[in-house]
Design a protein around this nucleic acid. Structure first.
Lengths: 212, 212, 212, 212
DNA sequence: AATGAATGAGAGTTCATTCAT
DNA sequence: AATGAATGAACTCTCATTCAT
C-alpha cells in the first residue's frame, strides 16, 4: 500500500522497516502464494541484493512481517463507541468497532493476519508470533467478561473461558468471511443478547446509548 | 489422505477424479503455497503431461478441487448427537459435532476449505464455488433457527439472519483457530445459552439430554 | 572441445552423454572454478532446465564427468612403442608414450584428470571414482615390474610396491607440471637406468630398439 | 591456519600481509573453487571494503597469495636428515624429508601450492610466480646432482637435466597424490638406487648412515 | 489416452565490487 | 584507513506448460 521510493537518507533500521512494510503490502495484495522477494525489493525501492543484506532468507523476512503485524495489531483502534453505561459491554462493542475499522480502513491488516495464521499451521516460527497475539487478545476479552459479571451487566452463569473463546472465534470467523460493516453491527446485537443478564437490561442499556 | 495407486482400468472421468483427489490431498498437506502439479501427478500415479491432458492449467485443477470439496462437504457428517427434545437445538448441536468430526477424522477437509476460502479473496473462480457453499450452510442454520423459535425453544426476539451469520462465523473461526474438540463442546454450551428462550429452559433441556 | 548442436534425434542416454561431454570440455577449459551449468547446457545445445532433467544437481553432473573420465582414461592409448625386447620395459615405455599422447592429442583429458584429483581432496564422491582409477593404474605397473624382474631385465632388488608408486608419482607429476614430449622421453631414459639390471643391458636393449 | 584477530595497531603493509595470510588459509581449506572474498576479510578481521582498499580485485589478492607462498616455500624446512657421507644424497634426501614435513606439519602449504599450480594453467599472472619457483627448485636439484657425480657417489652417466626433472616430477606427483610419510621414505630408497653409482656403494652409504 | 523429453520464465540466493561517509 | 550499505550480474535450481510420439 505504502509506495516507497529510494531515499538515501533512509538507512539501517529504517530500511529494514521499509522492507517489512513492503513485504506486508505484497502479502496483503497477493497472499503468501504470490509473495516474491523481487517484488518486495522493488516496492521498497531497493535492489534484491539489498533485501538479502537485511534479511538473509525469505523466511526471515516473513518472520519480520509477523512481528510487524503484531505491533500494528496492538497499536490500531477504530473510533471509540459510545458508552452503554457498562465498561465491559463498551469494550466488547469496541472490538466489533475495531473489526469494522480494520475491514474498512485497513483491509490489508486483516488479510495479512489471516494469511499468517493459516501459514502458521505449517510454520512454527509464525505460530510463535501469532498464537500469543490471539491468546493475549482472548485473555483481554475474558478479563472484560469478568468485569461485566461483577458489574452485574453480564449473566452470572457466563463461562468466561468458553465465552471469550466463542467471542474471539466469532470475530475471527467474521473477519475471515469478510462480513460487511452492517452485518458486524447486526451480529453484535446478538452477542449482546447472549451476554447480558436480561433482555430488559439490554434494552435499557441500548436506549441510554442511542438516546443520550 | 486417499492413497491412489495407478490403475490401468481407471479411465476418463475416473482419472480426472483421482487427480482432483490427489490435488486435494496435496493442498491439505502443504497449502496452496506448496502445491506442485508434479506432486499431484505423482500422487495420482500418472505422468505430469497426463495431468495437463485432463486439466489444461493448474487453475483448472484447483477449480476442480473446489468443486470436489463442495461435494464432500455436503456428504460427510459426524455421529448424530443425542436428542435434547428440540429438533432445532439438536441440529445446531449436530453442526458442532460435525466440526469436531472433521477436526478429528478429516482434518484435511477443513484445512482445504480454509485454504480455498482464503484464496477466494483473490480468485473469483473459487469464490463462485465457496461462497454459495457457505451461503447454503448459513441458510440451513437460519431455517433451523426459525424452527427453534416456532418450537418455542429459542428466544422470540432472535434475529435469525444475524444469528445464523454469527453462528456460522463462530464455527468458521473455531475451525480456523483449530479449537480442540473439548473447547468446541464448551463453546456450544454458551451458544445454547444465547439461543434458548430462558436459562431455566436450557437446564430442563440439558437434564433431559444427560439423564434420558 | 566437441561442439554439440541441438539434434532432435539425440535422446535419452545419448543426451546424458552429450551433457557429460560438454561438462568435461568446460572443466578442461576453465577448471572447476569456472564451471557453470549454463555454459554446459549451452555447449550441449540444450536448455538449462534440460540439464537439470538429466542431472538433478551440479554435483551429480560432476560425478557423471568423473565416471566418463574413468572410461576414457582406460580406453585411450598412444601409438605403440617399438619393442626393446622386454615386454615389461615396453609396457612402461608405453605409459610414457601414452602420457605424451594425452599431452599432445588430448590435453583436456589430463587437465580434467588433474582437476578432478585435486577436487577429490574435498569431495569424497570424486575420490571414490578417481582413487580406484589411480590404484588400478599403479597395480598394473607393479605387475609389469614383477614381469620385468622375472624376465631378468629389471633389477632383482627392485621394490615393486615402492617402485610402482614412484613410477606413478613421477608420471603424475610430469603430467601436472605439463612436461613437454621431449622432456618426457628424456626422463624415461633415466627411468630405464633406474629399473634395468645394468647399464650395459640397457644399452644393448636400446641398440636393439633403435637399430632393429 | 594462522588465526589473525583484528588489531588496531596493525596498519599498512601489515594489514596487506594479514589479508594475504587469511586468503592463503581459505584456499588451503576450500581451494579456489570455494574462495570468497568475504570469508577472507572475515578471517582477517576486517570489513570486505577494506580488503578491496588493499587489493582492488580478487585476482590481485590471489597474486599476493602466490608471492606469499613463494616466500614461505623457501623459508621452511623439515628436520635435517642424518648424513650418508654424501652431501648430494643428503640434500636430495632432505627434499623428501621436507616433503614429509610439509605433508605432516604444513599440509596447507602443499595444498595451496597445488591449487596455485593448477590455476596457473589458465592464469599467466600465477604462472609468472609459480614457474620460476619450481624452476629454481629443479635447478637446485640439478646442482646437487652434479655435486654427487663429482663426489663419485652418483652414476657418471646420470643426465642431470632429465634427472632433476624426473626427481621434481616424482616429488610433485607424490605431493599431489598425498602419499603418506612411510611411502615417501620407501620411494626414496628407489630414488637412491636410481642415482647411486652402484648398489654396493648404496649399501656402504646406508650402513654408514644407520651405524654412525 | 498417455508419456518422456524439453523448455522459457523466473524463483531465491550469492558474490565481487563500489560508494558515501 | 576503514566501513556499513548497496548493487548488478550471475548463480543453481524449479515449475507450469508444451510437444512429438
Amino acid at each position: 500500500m505504502v509506495e516507497q521510493e529510494r531515499d538515501p537518507s533512509v538507512a539501517g533500521e529504517d530500511r529494514r522497516q521499509s522492507l517489512v512494510r513492503a513485504a506486508f503490502d505484497c502479502i496483503a495484495a497477493g497472499g503468501f502464494e504470490g509473495l516474491r522477494t523481487r517484488s518486495v525489493a522493488e516496492r521498497a525501492g531497493v535492489n534484491i541484493a539489498t533485501l538479502h543484506y537485511y534479511f538473509p532468507t525469505k523466511e526471515a523476512l516473513i518472520a519480520g512481517v509477523a512481528e510487524y503485524l503484531a505491533s500494528r495489531f496492538i497499536a490500531l483502534h477504530g473510533m471509540p463507541v459510545r458508552s452503554t453505561g457498562s465498561a465491559a459491554l463498551d469494550c466488547l462493542h469496541q472490538e466489533f468497532a475495531d473489526a469494522r475499522f480494520y475491514h474498512a480502513k485497513h483491509p490489508d491488516l486483516s488479510a495479512v493476519m489471516l494469511e499468517l495464521q493459516l501459514r502458521g499451521r505449517r510454520d512454527p516460527a509464525i505460530r510463535k508470533v501469532i498464537d500469543p497475539l490471539i491468546g493475549h487478545w482472548r485473555a483481554g476479552i475474558e478479563r472484560w467478561m469478568k468485569v461485566g459479571i461483577v458489574e452485574g451487566v453480564f449473566r452470572r452463569d457466563l463461562d468466561v473461558s468458553a465465552g471469550s473463546t466463542l467471542f474471539v472465534s466469532a470475530l475471527w470467523g467474521a473477519t475471515s468471511l469478510a462480513l460487511s460493516a452492517g452485518k458486524l453491527e447486526q451480529i453484535f446485537e446478538e452477542v449482546s443478547r447472549w451476554l447480558l443478564a436480561s433482555a430488559a437490561q439490554l434494552e435499557s442499556k441500548r436506549n441510554r446509548r442511542t438516546k443520550p
